[in-house]
Amino acid sequence: MPAIKVTDLKKVFKSKRKEAGMLGSLRSLTHPEYKTIEAVCGLSFEMEAGELLGFIGPNGAGKSTTIKILTGILFPTGGDASVLGYTPWRDRHKLAYQIGTVFGQRPQLWYHLPAIDTFTLFGKIYELDELVLKRRIGFLAETFEIGDLLEIPVRKLSLGQRMRCETAASLLHSPKLLLLDEPSIGLDVVAKQRIRDAIREMSKLENVGVLLTSHDAGDLEALCRRVIIINHGQIVYHDKVSNLKRKYLTSKLVEVRYAAEVNQDFQIYGMETLKVGRYGVKLRFDTKNTSVDLVMSRLSEKGSLVDITISDPPLEEVIARIYEEAA
């Protein structure tokens, strides 16, 4: 039985339209107009138990709405979904014991209290035996490297530290499935890596399935084997991450900063120059044609490097390419 089975899922929101200004406000009172927003339009997919599935797309694509339907918070407008054998919106209470959730932009830890207080509370909420809870907290503290953070009020933690505590809290009751909605949003590179490592470790140790939504392609590359890309509430790509990388994530952006001023007609063979500043240059290259090693050596030949950043193209660009190919 798949951990998640979604068939032709739809969610339509209705929102009131209002023209600008006082007159618009009055008009919306006397003649209210409504706009329907199709957040999810006929989504169908499956996810196996213990699988790490990436569910990515740009802002407003319908990722979070789908996650909220799968946790039973929202009722769908149409279609069907089964999560661990439960219909989420009908069996929300039973399902809650089996799943963990992290909404990256919303805190679940009590903000003014140390995280250990929330952990103890969750132990009661999920009806864990005290000894089991104590052992579990010890294990998670080690895996997420949060042992020395648990007794500090949450408001005093950095975002990265807080997110590690948030994710650990969502795993306290040993869920079979973890739904992560943008767990790495706003984190720096190091914090992102630590969260990713811990999630990967937990999935491997306890066979926890992970449905990960993100608009960061890096999360996907680091964690998932399979990926679903959605846009405007529909699936635009569904394949293995390795195939996506081979087809679309070969293009890399490089931002370089030199110690001395750079030539304004800066060019490097095998790379496309996007922008030239006084000391910095922005370029693009394709890993299919040019290796990262080669790029590094050619860049350093041009002068003394002060800083360098290599990143994936924005997801919007990847989606645009997928659309182009489909057309």
Binding site: K68, H93, T101
Partner: peptide, 13 residues
């Protein structure tokens, strides 16, 4: 308004 409700609703209570 803030979306905090997502956490309040998805716990077994």
């Amino acid at each position: 308004k803030t979306g905090e409700l997502a956490y309040v609703l998805n716990k077994p209570y």
